[in-house]
Amino acid sequence: MHLSKYIIVICLSLIFINCGKTNSSKQTGLTINTAVKSLMLGDTLKLSINNPKNLDITNVSYQLNGKSVDNTTILNTTTLGKKVITAVVKYDDQTETITKSIKIFNNVIPSYYKYEVVNTYPHDITSYTQGLEFYNGELYESTGQRGESKLRKVNFETGEVLKNINLENQYFGEGLTIMNDKIYQLTWQKERGFVYDVNTFEKISSFNYGSSKEGWGICNDDKTLYKSDGTEKIWLLNPDNLTEQSHIQVYTEKGKIPSLNELEWIDGKIFANIYQKNGVVIINPNNGGVEGVINFKPLRELVTQHDELDVLNGIAYHPERKTIFVTGKNWDKLFEVKIKKQ
């Protein structure tokens, strides 16, 4: 036999042997039974083991996303989205670990909110708005596009730029948020964010992303930073070291909401712009459930129509006025609105 053929035969033999060892545990046919295919927040998760070969099972322990659960568990404190159930099954002096994926949906239908425009202000039509936030009564804005990305402090009533720095050309600016006199600004695909002094705009430091590979929107609740990455996930960052501690997945009663973009923290909820949809969802930060929806699409018809006009993006809450300011990419107007549940 030719040497190369001999090597191939040996390799194939090893593959078959290893496959046999890998699959031997699967010969038991043990699987996890969840009784129902879809689950909602508040449902009871009932777990059992399908045991087609009637093995003498002596013990079973379960975990839901790494946390121990009983075989009957009410899903009232879990977060939403994709989860992994793990079962460790002991039988005949052997142990087998099996898993099953499930999805948990929200148990409420989102409320619809209407809005009223109470004021309209000028906005720089060349600003590809990515982040917008008030801090101590002053409006700050982050803009995008490579070679055009900026960090700004703006007089919201006149549109005058009070302070401005340009990002290096390789960076595509994204969302921003401000906490404890520090501005946190994201960039898109470079997996890097920047921290500035809010008073001087001096860059203090930079930070790298973790499991989230892109930067889209960011907000804070005075303790934690919340970061979107263009998916249905919102990542919770430790403000001391800017590491990603965990994440929530944003779901309605029907499924996930992808393309989450600019974020704003308003009265204990996360308001998130959905990219390309000209709408905003109101999210419960404890579990990721969508509790409300605002359709801002008509606002786009109220701005100057031009070739560079793009979608709604930019949500800023003014706590003293109890109003929300919204604009869009290359919009020439900034709208102050009040919202009300329908």
Rank of each mutant, 00 (worst) to 15 (best):
C11A: 15
C11P: 01
C11I: 14
C11M: 12
L12T: 08
L12A: 06
S13C: 15
S13G: 15
S13T: 15
S13R: 07
S13K: 08
S13D: 06
L14E: 02
L14Q: 03
L14D: 02
L14W: 11
L14M: 13
I15A: 11
I15Q: 05
I15E: 04
F16S: 07
F16G: 03
F16W: 05
I17Q: 03
I17E: 02
I17N: 04
I17L: 14
I17P: 07
N18H: 08
N18R: 07
N18A: 13
C19D: 08
C19Q: 10
C19E: 10
G20W: 06
G20S: 07
K21H: 12
K21C: 12
K21L: 15
K21D: 04
K21G: 10
T22L: 13
T22R: 08
N23S: 07
N23Q: 08
N23D: 03
N23P: 00
S24D: 10
S24Q: 12
S24N: 12
S25N: 04
S25E: 08
S25I: 11
S25P: 00
K26G: 10
K26A: 04
Q27Y: 11
T28I: 11
T28L: 10
G29I: 12
G29A: 09
L30T: 15
L30N: 02
L30C: 14
L30I: 15
L30G: 02
L30H: 04
T31E: 15
T31C: 06
T31G: 01
I32P: 02
I32M: 08
I32Y: 09
I32E: 06
I32H: 01
N33M: 07
N33I: 08
T34Y: 06
T34I: 05
A35C: 07
A35P: 02
A35H: 13
A35L: 09
A35V: 14
A35K: 15
V36H: 13
V36W: 03
V36A: 11
V36K: 10
V36E: 15
K37V: 15
K37N: 14
K37P: 03
K37D: 07
K37A: 14
S38F: 15
S38C: 06
L39Y: 00
L39W: 00
L39I: 13
L39A: 02
M40L: 00
M40T: 01
M40P: 00
L41F: 05
L41D: 00
G42D: 04
G42P: 04
D43V: 01
D43S: 03
D43A: 03
D43H: 04
